[in-house]
Simulated assay, not measured.
Amino acid sequence: MHSCNADYRTHGWRQALIARCKGLSPVETAVAHPCDATALEAAVQAARRGLIVPILIGPEAKIRATAAAAGVDIAGFRLENTPHSHAAAARAVSLVRAGEARLLMKGSLHTDELMHEVLAADTGLRTARRVSHVYLMDVPRYPRPLMITDAAINIAPTLDDKRDIVQNAIDLAHILGIAQPRVAILSAVETVTSKLQSTLDAAALCKMADRGQITGALLDGPLGFDNAISPEAAAEKNITSAVAGCADILIVPDLVAGNLLAKQLTFLAGADAAGVVVGARAPIILTSRADSETARIGSCAVAVLMAHAQATAIPVVGA
């Protein structure tokens, strides 16, 4: 178990993740509709680093024109021609279902369009687990990597949804080498009140962990954001907890809260961020045009580690 008093690490964990991918074989990745320079370059850069083997899926003429305009060489990559973005999303998902690709990567289409195909009942990539998104953040003033979920997929998750969201994040933490992650269930206050549903959900999730319905982590909540990440704030409120003040995973009440928190840390606190969708048959690399190159590469590295952990079925580091 790691210490709450670890030295500050600024922007170092992403390099460690990429280093862990060295020696691993690149993973076949279905790239849905990479029809702008940013999306196409992200796939090519990840390939050059030996992380993925891209399968470019979309209107062939548009992809080739984008590559020519951006000066990107795609000569060595498999290209699947589809008429439009919707067909590209469907084809990308079908390649993952068929085992021809082990990762799915969003190109220049809308997230909703891709996730519609992912979540399709008969043809998608659903499992018994709820699909969710996890941000992995390196915040300069926080002493360890910080995971935030869910800030991109589930708008207003129910208690059952949150159970899956929590377990998805815990499983990812194990793959990343965190043996017993500390999970803080966030709300506006740290006391349970019937007036605030998120505090009731937090209390229920903690009891679920006590009863073995959530495994592999330490949970506490409800906790305010300050109590979750600041030992001083937790002490000021007289909160005695193995989680308070040194959380590894933050579970937000809803998508709006999580999205605002992640973007505030990125744009105001100078945090590096990477993100991945978990809980589906394969990891999904879900980045946006606003993401930096390092964020995209970091997201690919996380997904690659997940794919190899799933493929080998060997107990992951720290699990």
Rank of each mutant, 00 (worst) to 15 (best):
A47Q: 15
S94N: 11
A188N: 14
R97H: 00
A87Q: 01
A152F: 00
L265M: 06
D7F: 09
P140A: 10
P157M: 04
V139W: 05
I214E: 14
V304M: 08
A311V: 10
V118C: 04
K22A: 15
A30H: 10
K106D: 07
A313Y: 01
A282M: 02
R97I: 04
I178G: 06
T123V: 02
A242C: 02
A311S: 03
C206R: 15
V256C: 06
A282K: 14
A242D: 14
A75P: 09
I314A: 08
I249V: 12
T149C: 00
L159M: 07
V166C: 09
D36N: 00
L265D: 01
R97T: 07
A309H: 01
P181W: 12
V93N: 08
A121V: 13
Q180E: 13
A92L: 02
A303E: 04
P54F: 05
L186M: 08
R163W: 07
V53W: 04
Q15F: 11
L250Y: 04
D226T: 02
I249H: 05
P222S: 12
H11P: 01
A121I: 09
D171Q: 15
A42C: 11
A32S: 04
Q167M: 10
D7K: 14
A32C: 11
A319F: 02
S292D: 11
T294P: 00
H2S: 14
A309K: 10
T29E: 07
R211E: 09
H33M: 06
L223G: 14
S299N: 01
I74A: 01
Y142V: 00
I170R: 10
D210R: 14
R141L: 13
M306F: 07
K263F: 01
N154C: 09
R102Q: 12
T66K: 00
A313G: 08
R182W: 09
A89Q: 09
V252D: 04
M137N: 01
G23L: 07
A169G: 03
R130M: 04
Q310P: 00
M208Y: 14
A101Q: 02
